[in-house]
Amino acid sequence: MLEILKLNHIYKIYGDKVQHSALKDINLSIEKGEFVGIMGPSGSGKTTLLNVISTIDAPTSGEVLINGENPYKLDSSELALFRRRKLGFVFQDFNLIDTLTIGENIILPLTLDGQRVSTMDKKLKEVAARLNIENIISKRTYEVSGGQAQRTAIARAIIHSPLLLLADEPTGNLDSKAAKDVMELFESINRDTGVTTVMVTHDPKSASYCHRVMFIKDGQFFNEIHRGDSHQKFYHEILDVLSLLGGEAR
């Protein structure tokens, strides 16, 4: 199988006077088509880890390889191009651009890439249909619900068929119904398009949609569990590890 993401001995240290290690010797290998969750208590470093993978926060030492390429060795314009073509992001607070309509938000990565308007329209149609948001594409961001906003963000993250889809607490701001919808979407997108997906979450329910879940604590690798056949069973296994981690998973 093709290795899409590889982390080798990642360290991240903050501060000058008072040093604080956010990540200590993290290793991870993710193959094409995998759907991996990262969990851990508050301050465990899971968001820092995702930022390191997202190419927006360079590790203090260690190597990040995405599709065999180290993005931190690229210059800033190459890196921008890399993000634009190979990565897709979904955030907890959606991070849509208020001045644009839903449809314009979705095609933004293509706009930045200078693609033809006809191509944009075609892709928008496809992705909107897949995410069932065709009826809101001309609305503005403040006119849609949280679930619709997150669907828009997902559409924006996959319209350019990225190599790696990264999600930071995508269900954090949603009610349980909308969260379930969004996770089912992630699952189906991963299954149908084979996009490799990495998601940070504190919600065991959301995590149970992943193929495997990695746990970190105090910046270090703690445990890893794989999903079998059953959602329900995986959910309980996750809960078990979390209680082992000591307390609530936030």
């Binding site: 993000r83 634009r84 930045l112």
Partner: peptide
């Protein structure tokens, strides 16, 4: 500034 941050994470280059 937040808006610019989002755009850059989506792959907008400094030049853009």
């Amino acid at each position: 500034s937040k808006e610019f941050g989002i755009l850059m994470i989506l792959g907008m280059s400094k030049k853009q």
